[in-house]
Write a protein that binds this DNA or RNA. Sequence first.
DNA 1: CGTAACTTTGATCTTTATCAAGCCTCGTGG
DNA 2: CCACGAGGCTTGATAAAGATCAAAGTTACG
Lengths: 216, 216
Amino acid sequence: MTLPILCPIVRRGVRLRAHCVSCAGTPPGGMQLAKGDFLYRQGDEARHVFAVTGGWLQVFVTTPDGKHAAARFVGPGDVIGLEALSPKTPTYLATTTALRTSRACAVSPSEMRTWFQENPDDAMALTALGVEDLATLQRRMVMNASLGADERVLELVKDFAARAQPGTWVELPATREQLGAVLGLTFETVSRALHRLADRGLIAVDGRRVRLEDGR
Amino acid sequence: MTLPILCPIVRRGVRLRAHCVSCAGTPPGGMQLAKGDFLYRQGDEARHVFAVTGGWLQVFVTTPDGKHAAARFVGPGDVIGLEALSPKTPTYLATTTALRTSRACAVSPSEMRTWFQENPDDAMALTALGVEDLATLQRRMVMNASLGADERVLELVKDFAARAQPGTWVELPATREQLGAVLGLTFETVSRALHRLADRGLIAVDGRRVRLEDGR
DNA sequence: CGTAACTTTGATCTTTATCAAGCCTCGTGG
DNA sequence: CCACGAGGCTTGATAAAGATCAAAGTTACG
């Protein structure tokens, strides 16, 4: 008999369902998304909180004037759609789409409510998790403002690599254009930056696969 | 007899203390900060959640390589320092400093815990509030990536104006340099952008005071 | 096997950073 | 009361980074 596989959610310290420890990414109610599917769209009524259990998704924001650009990538362990917990008529504040086949576990606000009532510690942990995401985004924002293209791309590559085995090839889940959308760069600049980093010996690039050279 | 003044926190739908409705920004335990004071520093042990009840503060992030830049401004109604709710040894993930005399109400995690237990709805509201902040930051990030200097500055001015009476002069709580730090621009560019916007008739500028012309 | 999407690479142009100089305002001390 | 100085603001000239335009090579997939 094998050991129970830990749900990715548990790895970030929050259990979205009581039975999450044994769900292994396919909980009852867990849903599968094909590449290009939308998990939800900005402005939709927010009926569920989602825990990503597999794959990669991209979060988009549409500004009032119609501009829209990517904000961040979310992968296993990330909890999104917390707008559903808002007391006012909750609407999603961003659009989330699958970059590849992905899995997400959906939880309704009413489930969340009883869970919060029984486990205030989990409620606090989830709130803190949101702040962690906020801090990550703040960090990325600072980088986008203060670093050049090469360093920004390197940081993003490191972020993806941090979720995989160290020293191995990592498949970037996005096109150059999608990477650039998050970094505030064009796809040409992303391409050039990747190759400049390779020239500097910091990474190895092979199409969409990347490996960190050197220490981490 | 005057009506009770609503604590700014209530305006964003979350009561950090049961008696918040009557605290009017000076709750027991509320603290005053002088210009330049630090509310907390990145890396400090996170002992309190803070609700800003007056003034303006700026949030900084320091990246691992020592770079640091401003991430956002926080004012009355904002709740910060939610890192304190993290179950692991909680440390603040950013530095917050007062741009002018400000007030903040500090609440300990244990207080939050009992409050969450009694009011799961408030817990959900607070979590949702965090997501709102995340969405705001995502929006700003998208703008920083996709808009030019003028439009970015205009958006920031609008944000400040949105918290004041429409059509009135608004005092920007920050220097050109501090505004630029948030926008990813230099102070010269911020200065030029403000005057270009004034030339275009979109705003009126008088030193640190600004007024939106036209509809909003 | 053929097409569409993606990627690389080059040349040129725009925007914003950088460097620099002078001005204004406010607070402090003689 | 005035002189001074520091911090902040404006404005100009130049340089660098990245966007844009363009063309050709590569990969994925029906």
